[in-house]
Design a binder for these strands. Sequence first.
DNA 1: ACAAAAGTGTTTCGACTACACCCATGG
DNA 2: CCATGGGTGTAGTCGAAACACTTTTGT
Lengths: 296, 296
Amino acid sequence: MVVAVTDQGPSILTVGQGSALPSGPFELGHRSLQSGLRAWVEEQTGHQLGYIEQLYTFADSDRIGEQRQQRVISISYLALTRAEQAAGPAQRAWRRWYDFFPWEDCRAGIPPMIGEILQPRLLAWADGASNDQVKRERRQRAAAGFGWDGHAWNEELVLQRYEQLYEAGLIEEAMRGPRPGVSLPIPGIAMTADHRRILATGIARLRSKIKYRPVVFELMPPVFTLLQLQRTVEALSGRLLHKPNFRRLIEQQELVEETGETTADTVGRPAKLFRFRHAVLDERVVSGMKLPLSRS
Amino acid sequence: MVVAVTDQGPSILTVGQGSALPSGPFELGHRSLQSGLRAWVEEQTGHQLGYIEQLYTFADSDRIGEQRQQRVISISYLALTRAEQAAGPAQRAWRRWYDFFPWEDCRAGIPPMIGEILQPRLLAWADGASNDQVKRERRQRAAAGFGWDGHAWNEELVLQRYEQLYEAGLIEEAMRGPRPGVSLPIPGIAMTADHRRILATGIARLRSKIKYRPVVFELMPPVFTLLQLQRTVEALSGRLLHKPNFRRLIEQQELVEETGETTADTVGRPAKLFRFRHAVLDERVVSGMKLPLSRS
DNA sequence: ACAAAAGTGTTTCGACTACACCCATGG
DNA sequence: CCATGGGTGTAGTCGAAACACTTTTGT
C-alpha cells in the first residue's frame, strides 16, 4: 500500500482497473524483506519510497492454496512517498482513498451519507439480532464507532468501522461467495479480495502514527508552507484543524525551520517556507502532531 | 512470547535452559494463524492465553535456509496470560524479563549499572567513530535513549536501547559469528538467535500498549486490589507510580468496579477488591492507563 | 505505639482551546 | 476595498501533578 498526497487528496497506488493494491512474490536475494520490497516497488513504479512499515501478516483460510496443504502467507506493508514522479507504466494509477471510504472524510463536516445511509442500515442490522442483549451491544458499538448519541467522532477507528459494516453485510466484498448479497452495497468502491481491509488497516495506522511520529514529512515536498502541511494532515486525518493553534504546536515542537524564502506565486500574503528539521530525530524522542481540532 | 506477572515480577515462558522463546512450525488446518497459535501454545504449555498480538514478521538473510533458495519466515507474537496454572512438562520455565534486560528496571531508581557500565562503554564506542559528525550523533542518541544530560528516561525505548548496545558490540549476541567478541559482554542473559531482540520488541510494545488499551487486566487475577494493579503496571513499565493519583485515574475512567469484598489476610488496613468492568469495551473507545510517575 | 497499607482533599501548574484581532498581497 | 491567506495576543478551561493529611488494621 503506497500512499501519497496529491492535489486530489490522499491517494494510493493501485493496479488492475484501480481496484487492487500492488502485490508480488517475495524477492529472494535481499538482505531483508523491507529492502526487497523497496527495490521491487521502485523498479515497478519508479517511485522512491520514504517511510516503510509492516502492517500485518495473514495466512487465513480464504488464502489457503488449492491442495490445502500449503498456506499462502501475505505480508502487507504501508509505504509513504511524494507523488510528483511520473506515472510509470500504465495499469498503475493514483486513486483517492476516500473513493473507497467515503464515510471517512469529515473535512466538510460529518458526511450526510452516515446519517442517511449507514445509520438506518446499521440500526436495521442491529434490530435483526436474535436477542436483546446482542441488539444492545450492536447499537452500542455502532454508536461508539460512528459518533452517535453523545459519542465523539474518532478518526482512528477506520478498521473497526469497516469491520462493522462488513459484519452487517453492507460492504460489497461481504456479499461475494456462497451467499450472494440480497441488497445494494453502500457507497464506496470495492476492491479485490481483502485489499480494502488492508487499506483500512493502513489508513488507521497512518492516522494514529502522525500523532506520535513525524511521518507527515515523508509526504511533503522538501520545502512547504505551514498551510500546506496543515492541509496534508487534515487530508490524512479527515478532519479540519484550527489554524493558529496548529501553527503554534508545530513551531513549539521545533519540528520545522524557516528556509528564509517565501512563496511568491499565490494569492494572499506570501507565506514563509519551512523545511523539516531532520536533526530532531537524533535530539530527542519526537512525538508527531497533536490535532488541534476546529469546531466548525 | 508468553508474558505473565508472577510474584517474581514480569516473566516470560522459556524453553531450553531458559534461553529461548517457545516456537514451532505453522499449524495447518486452523482458521487463522492466531487461532492456530493459541491452540498450539495451550496444548504445549497448558496455559490459557488471554490477549494475543502479532509483533513482527522476519525473513532476513540470517534466517535463509541452507540451499539459499527458500526463505524461512518467522512470525513473532506477544501473548498475555495469568501465571497461576501448573508448570506443565519440564524444559519450560518462567524467567523474569529483567534477567535479560537488567537496565530496564528503574523501579528502585535508575540502576547503577547504567552509569557504571553502560555509559562508559557507550561513550567509548562513540569516541571510536571515524569522524566528529558520527561521534556527536552517537553520543546524542545514547543520551536520548538512556536519559543522560537533561533527557528524561523513557521506558518505551526498550528496542532502541537494545539496538544501540548491540550496535556498540556490548551484547553477547553481537559477539557471535565471524568476529568473536574482543571484550566482555555487559550484564543480562543472552538468548538463542535473535530471541532477545524479539523480547525487546515485545516489552516495548507492551509498555506502550498499556497506556492506550486496558490490557493489564489480562495479567491480573479476576479480583484484585488497586495496589496489586499498581504493582503490576509498575513491574511492566519498570517505573514507580504515584499511588493517590494512580487510584484516581483508574476510578475516573471507570475501568474497574468494587466487588464489595475486602482483603483479610494482609498486614495493614484491608483493601477493597475490584474487578475489571468488561462492559467498558462496548461503551466507548477505552484508553489504557496514564502513568502518574512518582518523583522518588 | 508504631508500621504498613488504604484512602481523601486541595492547590498549583501548564497545556490546549477559543476567540478576537491585525498584516500583507492581488484583483 | 475586499477576498484570501498569513500571523499574533490573550483569557478561559480542564486535567494532571504534587503535597499534606486522615483512617484502618496487625504486631
